[in-house]
Design a protein around this nucleic acid. Structure first.
Lengths: 336, 336
DNA sequence: TTGCGAAATGACAACGTTGTCATTTCGTTA
DNA sequence: TAACGAAATGACAACGTTGTCATTTCGCAA
């Protein structure tokens, strides 16, 4: 209404305008049932007229909590979107907002450094999204008053962790090959430093060894299709190669294209499985069977773990979110 | 050291431990040059010993600002990652953290509702990432004390906006076709409600009409490869179709696959351009020419605009970030 | 009308910082 | 050594809320 706005409208201003005490205004906001209807209305109109909005800082100072969860992205990749989505939705549902910081390109951020920065910000707990190894992983101790959950496939001595079951997913894919009569499985890896790639490789190895099969030398890729194509050209020349597990869908597609260019057919000559189940977005009528992880669920679990730990910060748990094998037709059944 | 930790260590505790006044501790943190070296050391050791960390709420309350920028994601898609990355890096560089909230699936969030929620949070300014139309877009007025920047291709009456130049990108691609001797350009759109798709279509139309060409009926897609494939099957039967502009790379790939399956070659029979330049990640030796937008830059600009507006919240600007045509070999030169 | 318990409201302190201004201490010069 | 200005430090209020406890007002029964 009036154009002359005080910089900030405080509860006191509202109280004066409504002709009540400051504390009554506070009650209208926090325990409206304890205020008479007529008083409540007066206060509400005053708030409306003055454009009052509660001051976050003062409120948090008094309450000793913020209602915010910190998120540290050590790594921000495509799959991260679904995870953030899950974190944000779960946070919203439980009445929390998110405060986010990010490792900058080139910067070498340790867990301790991340914790230090976060503890300067308005957060009650925090989530680290960690996809690569950091120097102080094993020695890191979270601040005692800040529940910390790490999203990582590695186990941590003191902090709760949440992870996709990448190893289990790879094992599942591998066993799927073997159960369909394949005698061996080749593997195309992602970037060396990626924990996802390492875990997927580990699961692949484990599955083969569990059946007494000597794992062949894995082929080094870099997540992109071209590296998969290069691997495919090599694999096409191996007569014993009937099954290829690629650490993601893009490389799996590269492998398939190379095989095709070498005159081999998928799945008639070689079977292929990928990871992440995203090829169908880019390739029409995609036939690629793929291991899909529920990134959204991962985010939800991480947030819930933080919130659950708000009262018992020293508790510690380990959560694994299993993957799903999305079956299409890129694997041939060699039995019978 | 000692296991008995008080819940929170305050400046006062540090002051007592160091044998100085509370204000001196404050000075050690905020204006260390005004404190004698020996005193500074005493205080630092005391802080270290007690594990002191400044209280965000008290500090913000006194200072009247938070050092945080709010980000509202009305939409969280793949391209959003790079944008968030840009926002986060720019924020970090300028000493701000990010506070994020998200529209939940199914929820119908208006700008007013987003602003209301944000103004309860610790933010000095905010960024809305808006990729679809909302009901109150034209009537929305940002809180006077909270600089608001909207990332959207639409112009807003009172708020600053930042956007990719989607229309310009589409025009650029179209003109590229025409400059290479093509007489007409077909268009495959994304989802109807997407502003990106609408803008790209608008640019395509404008470019054709500017040269006196009647735009053919656009084909409706849904961003995924299968819809592009369907469009490609239709286009393969049109004898006058030598050039296809698809609203993203996935659909462009679908179109190319359909053309191939119909016995046509790209680019010999039909030329194709896509958007977002991401096909090379999935397809080995990709030949697709594509319009790439600099999402990261978009985020950086948006954040800078907010920070710049912190002192003059009523200022208003419109920023367009141009796209880039990444040339490969999917367009044939028909001249000569 | 009076008296009573319950409901509604208010006064005041406290949360942990920083700004203002007064006071003490220091290093120099006379 | 005394006196001085500058540097260092401290006392106290203030930021805008909420918790505690005291006070006022209400509705109802006697």
């Amino acid at each position: 209404m009036a154009t002359m706005d005080k910089k900030n409208v405080s509860m006191n201003d509202v109280a004066i305008a409504a002709g009540v005490s400051l504390k009554t205004v506070s009650r209208v906001i926090n325990e409206p049932d304890r205020v008479r209807g007529s008083t409540r209305d007066k206060v509400h109109s005053a708030m409306e007229a003055l454009g009052f909005r509660a001051n976050f800082a003062a409120r948090s100072l008094k309450l000793g909590r913020y209602g915010c969860i910190g998120v540290v992205m050590f790594h921000l990749s495509g799959g991260a979107v679904d995870m953030i989505d899950g974190i944000a939705d779960a946070a919203e549902e439980r009445g929390f907002a998110l405060t986010m910081i990010k490792k900058r390109a080139g910067e070498k951020m340790t867990l301790a450094e991340a914790a230090r920065r976060m503890s300067q910000l308005p957060v009650d707990g925090m989530i680290f999204n960690l996809r690569q190894m950091v120097d102080d992983f094993d020695t890191f101790e979270a601040p005692k008053d800040l529940k910390t959950v790490i999203i990582t496939p590695m186990e941590h001595p003191t902090c709760s962790t949440v992870s996709d079951d990448q190893e289990g997913g790879a094992r599942m894919a591998c066993e799927y090959f073997l159960d369909h009569g394949h005698k061996n499985v080749y593997f195309v890896s992602g970037k060396k430093e990626s924990l996802s790639s390492q875990c997927r490789m580990k699961g692949w190895r484990a599955a083969l060894e569990a059946r007494g099969i000597e794992p062949p030398e894995p082929l080094q890729g870099d997540w992109n299709a071209d590296s998969g194509y290069a691997a495919g050209l090599v694999l096409a020349d191996k007569p014993d190669c009937t099954a290829v597990l690629a650490a993601n869908d893009c490389m799996a597609n590269g492998v398939m294209m190379a095989l095709r260019d070498k005159g081999l057919s998928v799945p008639d000559d070689v079977s292929v499985i990928g990871f992440d189940d995203e090829l169908y977005k880019t390739i029409p009528n995609s036939i690629l069977t793929s291991v899909k992880f529920r990134h959204r669920e991962l985010g939800v679990r991480a947030l819930n773990e933080v919130v659950a730990g708000l009262e018992a910060p020293s508790s510690r748990s380990r959560t694994l979110v299993s993957g799903v094998l999305v079956e299409r037709s890129s694997v041939k059944d060699l039995r019978a």
